[in-house]
Design a protein around this nucleic acid. Structure first.
Lengths: 212, 212
DNA sequence: GTCTATAAAAGGATAGAC
DNA sequence: GTCTATCCTTTTATAGAC
């Protein structure tokens, strides 16, 4: 991205199509967005999308891969660094490796927020298969890592609690209604909430009233 | 529903259209589902949907209201009962009033799960406005109730944490991949996770390692 | 690589017979 | 209330000039 001599010159027709598709798919859904709307937004011709991508589905795939591949790379790079330490990571550090790249990427590319929500939500079969394909490996590694730092939580519970983690993360990342927080504050609040939830005792009998 | 003398006889054309639309909208998204597909699934004529609902948008609205209105009524009924007690509710009881009806309704009407995911996800403006209209009052009341049972958590934090609560709840309710738990177990796991997360201390300095 | 033009199909919506 | 038939628009996708 900082390499002007790259083989992907900025503002190419291909990139403009990806930008436009990303914007419109996120704003209106894939099924409701026509290729004509995409090409109009990109300021290119109707036939360009078929020349460069072949079909609407492949355009959708390219839109997702462009943003989410580097996000997952960053997450796994952080997780690798944590696991290379002799003592092993803390719960907080593991969660931060999962969450922080999302927040930072969402700041750098505001469209990512809406894309993530779209990917987790779009009911079309192809989109859901794509979501699984793009996220399964990374999420599996983090789920396993969380299981290791939470040895007292049974594996089946880890899996369920990890679904809660992903749900909370996706929901705040994909919100249209802006939360009354700076990104860094929201990240910290999310990390505190998730860490406490993951550490919850297995026994539900703790009917304390009020705050901690 | 148990009143055969009601003015809404079961298996009416209207009901069959609602059933079919619910199924197909949830499975493929609104924009990607044609009215022709809906009427074919319902086994009725193409013109029936316009006769009974007037347009695709009004059909979508009717689909949501039919399922979500009673869900919210049940939630608010439970919250009212809790708040009528002299001591006021516990955090666990408040969360249960929010979560349990979702789980029970999702068992009774499996389509609800996919509808909830659809409503929170569909990026089309009308659908999002409908989601806000249908949920805003109920969610506002629960957010305020949670603030009262968590007096140590600042109001702005309550709002953010409530977004995490909704995200986790929606995500597990709308999952296509089945979780390895009975509904009652999943509900208990969710309640424990959410209660612990909401009670998290405001200070993030608690780098304990491992389980509780 | 980009454009114009057009094919071929599917979409929402309506009119009018029954 | 339900059907057939149809109008008009929009869609994806392609063919071929430049």
């Amino acid at each position: 991205m900082l390499d002007p001599a790259s083989d992907t010159p900025a503002s190419d027709t291909k990139d403009r199509l990806l930008d436009a598709a990303e914007r419109l798919f996120a704003a209106g859904g894939v099924g409701a967005t026509s290729l004509r709307a995409v090409t109009a937004e990109a300021g290119v011709n109707v036939a360009a999308v078929h020349y460069h991508f072949g079909s609407k589905q492949e355009l959708l795939r390219a839109v997702f891969v462009r943003r989410i591949a580097p996000l997952n790379e960053e997450r796994l790079k952080r997780l690798d660094a944590l696991e290379a330490q002799p003592d092993g990571p803390t719960l907080e550090a593991t969660l931060e490796a999962l969450v922080t790249p999302s927040i930072e990427f969402a700041e750098a590319h505001p469209q990512l927020s809406e894309l993530v929500g779209l990917l987790y939500s779009e009911p079309v079969d192809e989109a859901r298969a794509l979501a699984h394909e793009v996220f399964a490996e990374t999420m599996g590694r983090f789920c396993a890592a969380l299981g290791r730092v939470l040895p007292a939580v049974p594996p089946a519970d880890i899996e369920v609690r990890f679904a809660f983690v992903v749900g909370a993360m996706v929901h705040v990342l994909s919100r249209r209604a802006p939360l009354p927080h700076e990104p860094a504050e929201m990240r910290d609040a999310l990390l505190r909430f998730l860490a406490a939830g993951l550490r919850a005792p297995a026994d539900p009998r703790a009917p304390r009233r009020g705050a901690p």
